[in-house]
Design a protein around this nucleic acid. Sequence first.
RNA 1: GGCGCGAUAGCAAAGCGGUUAUGCUCUGGAUUGCAAAUCCAGCUAGGCCGGUUCGACUCCGGCUCGCGCCUCCA
Length: 453
Amino acid sequence: MLKVYNTATRAKETFTPIESDHVKMYVCGPTVYNYVHIGNARPVVVFDTLFRVLNCLFKQVTYARNITDIDDKIMKAAKEQGISIAALTAHYADEYVKDMAQLNALSPTISPKATDHVGDMIAMVEALIANGHAYEADKHVLFDVKSMDDYGKLSNRSLEDMLEGARVEVASYKKYAGDFVLWKPSSEDEPGWDSPWGRGRPGWHLECSAMIENHLGDTIDIHGGGRDLIFPHHENELAQSQCAHNGKQYVKYWMHNGFINVDGEKMSKSLGNFKTVRDLLGKFHGEAIRFALLSGQYRSELDFSAELLNQAKASLDALYGALLNSPAPVQALSDEQRNQSAVFAALLDDLNTPLAISELHKLSKELNKFPENADLKSELVGMAELMGLLQQEPDTWFQGEESDTSWIEDLIAQRNQAKLDKNYARADEIREELKAKGIILLDSKEGTSWRKE
RNA sequence: GGCGCGAUAGCAAAGCGGUUAUGCUCUGGAUUGCAAAUCCAGCUAGGCCGGUUCGACUCCGGCUCGCGCCUCCA
């Protein structure tokens, strides 16, 4: 039985999908105008893990992760670079997909783009105007938050409280300071779409509502994203969708991941202290980055550092080491084996990945003691797969994918001869020579193998 | 000002009212021509002050410190 923490109720709940054999999940993806940072990667890895677990439990899972390809930051970046927003976003959306694949994230079932759904958005705005939840003012269309009783419930705040802390000037055309933009006008040189309110573009929150309605329906099971999206993004999405659908429930379980911090502070594009996934991939295995992201429970903050990544790498070395030393075959796990695994139990408890990883370590220790045990090895590999870990060949993990390793083999052969000749000085010399090039030699009864540092 | 989160050993990070979390690091031992890997043993915990309890890291209250949202943000 899967339990998830629901932001809406502020409690851990048993997960029961609306349709018993079809789960619908939507996760907010990135705005593509640059390489994504590691903070963008956390929800991807977290909800990818949830996607894998859900696939074990339910017959069908539809997982949508959007690409935001229209937005003022995109417009600014495109203008600066003198290219179209379509060219800019197509490029960075591709790079995003590449980066996420390096983190072993499976492809979502669908990856809808905002610009493909402008018609849906316009239709939703029309519906909101028609039923009295939105109004047109000065070429804008605004959502009337006072027309909704429960506005603020998701983020647990009252309208008065919110406005008290507001640090932004209120636009004069708003009936009420808390009203938010559904549609805004575009100038001649800005991207825009024709609409009943003139040429313009959608407000930020609208795309998710429209894409969910189009692809998944009025009500979905899980909506995920970073904590910072709770307000205003998800609160406003909820308001729009619910009001456009006569009060019908929008989302059953809201799930939000905590932040990635750097030196104890939130990492963000606006603070400029962010690290791109691309840069990190130049220094660390994608799998080590993924491991680091899963080393903390998803709702907690996670301080991202080289130390964390080094520890992740060392831990993976230990796990892959156990696989390398085991000659046993890996078999597919039965449902029963999976259900009995402590790793699975940890994941079912609101994705307790740190606990799940500790269980992986326990399995690897046992496997080191009993390398022939195929059940142990199969459980280790099969359960790690649910977290997107330990899926490459141990040799590949330790040696990389270098094409020509014959020079290493040559030196090992030379050293073996030196050892036979009892010329240990020469043998040690070769060891040092390889170590200087980042190659570690491991002698065993079966012979000498090597790995990268 | 409103709302919320956190504080666990050198680092990272969980569960749990009483029984070894776990990993990395470090120390000692086994093993090894050397080294690594592995195994065994060990070392550092629960911000502070009270309360409840036979017993609290775990429950309750207060305090201190740190962080987040209220503005584009994963």
